[in-house]
Nucleic acid binder design. Structure first.
Length: 272
DNA sequence: ATGATCTCCTGAGCGC
DNA sequence: TGCGCTCAGGAGATCA
């Protein structure tokens, strides 16, 4: 499941081969994704990719043509992938968009269709991240911002971390891992996180995300990068999907509970 | 207003 | 062997 580190890995991969290239053609499946696009994706034909940006889990493809600009936003949802391909490669099922570029193709595939592709009109900015808080790895995500948001929320701290409006980019994996690293119980209300644990939790979030990027992200089931390679951060997960296994710190058994309908993995002995 | 729950979707895994 | 059930969760919509 792509979270910030996986999307950043995809962004870097796409940037290496796509920036400066003209989109010569666009093929689509016609199947509806999570959100409808504003303009037809085919309208990207003839536009040049000038850059790839990311805010949290959203990718932005900047396009330019004859002095004008526009943007394509993309979200990978649960099972979305961007892959480089040769024109003769077999097209896998659930391939929803293919960008034809000189010498190769870029294909967006998403079996469960939780992702989206939105092409905005010429000159318009993308609004996908309008309700989002600062990206967790950006300078805007300060310790002060985090403290203010945290102390103002009565939600369980695990649910708080997943709230993209508070700070954006954390998904289920890294919420569990950051809480474990900071030794904070996921069941504790955000506003009741001990004062002395706020800074450790802030740094745990930043560290775990950055370390995962360095490892190419985490692959549980579906995620692969633009070359089809899985991320290897799974080997460094302390608690996620480790129910029943001993905690690395105290040898107690890692537990799994459900919060807001999602699995939370933690050590009830270490995390208080 | 805020937090909790539901919904969308497909494929993997499991039990009978 | 094969069918049907459950589960996975990002995030917008809806409910409490």
């Amino acid at each position: 499941m792509p979270e910030l580190p996986e999307v950043e890995t995809v962004r870097r991969g796409l940037a290496t081969r796509l920036v400066g290239r003209a989109i010569q053609g666009v093929s689509t499946s016609g199947v509806a994704l999570r959100k409808p696009t504003v303009c037809a994706l085919e309208d990207m034909e003839g536009w040049v990719v000038t850059g790839l940006r990311r805010h949290a889990k959203i990718l932005f493809l900047d396009l330019e043509r004859e002095g004008q600009t526009r943007v394509l936003s993309a979200h990978l949802g649960m099972t979305g992938t961007f892959r480089f391909a040769e024109s003769g490669d077999p097209v896998l099922p659930h391939t929803h968009m293919t960008l034809h570029v000189e010498g190769f193709e870029v294909r967006f595939r998403d079996p469960r269709r939780f992702g989206w592709l939105t092409l905005y009109p010429v000159g318009e900015a993308a609004t996908d991240a309008a309700g989002y808080g600062p990206d967790c790895l950006s300078d805007a995500f300060t310790q002060e911002h985090f403290r203010t948001q945290l102390t103002g929320s009565k939600a369980p701290v695990k649910a708080f971390l997943l709230d993209q409006a508070k700070q954006a980019g954390i998904g289920n994996i890294y919420a569990c891992e950051a809480l474990y690293r900071a030794r904070v119980s996921p069941r504790r209300k955000a506003c009741n996180v001990p004062a002395g644990k706020v800074e450790p939790l802030y740094h745990a979030i930043r560290d775990v995300l950055q370390e995962s990027i360095d490892m190419g992200g985490t692959t549980l089931n579906d995620y692969v990068d633009t070359l089809g390679d899985p991320g290897t951060f799974i080997d460094w997960l302390d608690v996620f999907q480790r129910e029943g296994q001993p905690c690395q710190g105290c040898q107690a058994t890692v537990k799994r509970i459900v919060q807001s309908g999602r699995s939370t993995f933690y050590c009830s002995n270490c995390q208080r």
